[in-house]
Simulated scan of single mutants.
Amino acid sequence: MPETHTHPVLVRPAALPDEAALGELDRATWSTLHEVVPRPQPPYEPFFDERHRPEDFLVAEAADADGERRTAGYLRLVLPTPLACNSHVRQIQGLAVADWARGRGVARTLLRAAFAAARREGANRMTLRVLGHNTPARALYESEGFVVEGVLPGEFFLDGRYVDDVLMGRPLAP
């Protein structure tokens, strides 16, 4: 359930000073429920690099249990390819929410902010990939209008079992 008006979830574009908090959040939320890459190990790579630029991320902030506003989550929104014929599409390539902020509407708020940002950039379609066994994420995406558009069966071998790669998409009506 989204937070009340007294402690809203605020979404803003990421900036270079967010790197440490986003890297920490990324490592804290790592799980084979949604990751196909190995768990990050020290020394940690920078969160931002040539392929993961601050301008590709939206950051959610919310008040923690002590009322302090903190980084609660992030969403990475990019062009799926560099091709002009694909420039009407935006793709979500990462979404994370801090454990302390779960159940407060952070992911939904980030998704809706991504829809608005994509529309402002002229996009009319949004896509993403989600692991087949990530039932909570799939339910969230479906509740926000995404539909399954394809499945790559057994695409990944995680924790001793084969996991589907599910392709989802939705239109971005004005």
Rank of each mutant, 00 (worst) to 15 (best):
G103R: 04
F47E: 14
W100N: 07
V130D: 02
M168Q: 05
T6M: 15
R90C: 02
G73H: 01
L140Q: 03
T127W: 00
N86K: 00
L131D: 07
A123E: 00
V151H: 06
L77E: 00
A113R: 07
N134A: 07
V11S: 06
P46I: 04
A62K: 03
T29N: 04
V36Q: 07
G103H: 07
P82T: 00
L10W: 11
T81N: 00
T71A: 13
L10Y: 08
V59N: 03
D64R: 03
T6S: 15
R51W: 14
L77W: 02
H34Q: 13
D18L: 06
E121W: 08
A137N: 06
E45H: 11
T135P: 03
R119N: 09
L25N: 06
P38K: 04
V130H: 03
G103Q: 07
R70P: 10
H7G: 13
P42V: 10
G169L: 03
R112F: 06
A137P: 07
Y44S: 13
P171D: 14
E55K: 08
R51G: 15
R104S: 10
V106C: 07
T135R: 11
T81P: 00
R125V: 06
V37Q: 13
A72S: 08
C85F: 01
G67P: 05
M1H: 14
L158A: 11
R108A: 15
V89P: 00
R12Q: 12
V36A: 10
A139L: 14
R90T: 00
L152M: 13
